[in-house]
């Protein structure tokens, strides 16, 4: 029973990791923007849920709000820094600090409460409904993204730009429009993840800082821009973390997970999956 519980906990940790990393597979994975402000898009989603006090309604609203904010950020700042990854790192880190302090000034420094709907409190057989909801939400997001990338015109264009920007441009793809859309979707997904996080964790100005490192870990371990890689990395690391923590403790589990990732990246610096492209980069 304990082991079965732990397996479920691992899967639900994986779902949380996957949700927070999904948006980053777009902004970092597809566009190469080291987006340190990704955590603050989670924050935007979480505060949207707080303002609405309705988790389900907050999902689409948070997608829109965080997506719009991401679009503004891309238009105003980030597009001026394309191809300069270290500068974007500093830029987005600055943006994240500003957004955190803004949250503190608007909503106050203490945590705020988000009331979970009645049907999400409690659980079945020791599995909390909120965790099951997050698991389903993460899988639904993955399904939606993969449909978008493979079946829809815009998604295929996005992949084309990522694989070979010049070739996509000469073939008539408006790469700048594609960049805007990619950033909007990436930020919007972070907003959705932020709403989900209100079910299980604190909602305060520092929320983003707790998850940003994990999000980068998943994207790097899974391979840049690889949805499949991110899904596998998230669930493997979630289950690994949960069992190591069960047998030892939380601090050691973090150490082990990091060590495993470091060792793995030594063997496969490109991550689980690698994008094969004929681009001359």
């Amino acid at each position: 029973m304990a082991v079965l519980n732990q397996l479920f906990i691992g899967a639900s940790m994986g779902a949380v990791l996957l949700l927070i990393a999904l948006g980053l597979t777009f902004t970092f994975g597809q566009m190469g923007v080291i987006n340190m402000a990704h955590g603050e898009f989670l924050l935007v989603g979480a505060y949207t849920a707080y303002l609405l006090q309705n988790v389900v309604l907050a999902l689409p609203v948070a997608f829109a709000v965080a997506g719009a904010l991401g679009l503004v950020l891309e238009r105003l700042l980030i597009r001026r820094f394309y191809g300069r990854p270290l500068d974007t790192l500093l830029l987005t880190f600055g943006v994240s600090l500003i957004l955190q302090q803004l949250a503190r000034d608007i909503f106050g420094a203490p945590n705020v409460g988000v009331t979970a709907p009645a049907w999400l409190t409690g659980g079945i057989g020791g599995f909390p409904y909120s965790r099951i909801f997050i698991l389903v939400l993460a899988l639904a997001c993955v399904a939606a993204i993969s449909l978008y990338l493979t079946r829809m015109k815009q998604g295929r264009r996005m992949r084309a730009v990522m694989q070979n920007r010049q070739l996509a441009a000469v073939s008539g793809v408006a790469t700048e429009r594609v960049d805007q859309l990619t950033f909007l979707i990436g930020s919007g997904l972070a907003g959705v993840a932020g709403v989900a996080l209100t079910l299980i964790g604190p909602v305060g100005p520092s929320l983003g800082t707790y998850y940003i490192v994990d999000a980068f870990l998943i994207v790097v371990a899974g391979g840049l821009g690889q949805l499949r890689g991110a899904v596998i990395a998230a669930f493997v690391l979630g289950v690994l973390n949960s069992f190591v923590e069960f047998w030892t403790d939380a601090s050691l589990a973090k150490v082990v997970v990091f060590a495993v990732i470091v060792a793995f990246l030594q063997l496969r610096p490109q991550g689980l999956f690698v994008l094969r492209s004929r681009a001359l980069t």
Binding site: A2, M13, V16, Y210, S242, A250, S251, A253
Partner: peptide
């Protein structure tokens, strides 16, 4: 006796240990 890092946000495993 369980310790978690400051800012830790994942308590399912600790709760499972409590249940055991």
């Amino acid at each position: 006796e369980e310790y978690t890092p400051l800012g830790h946000t994942e308590y399912s495993t600790v709760v499972n240990k409590l249940q055991q």
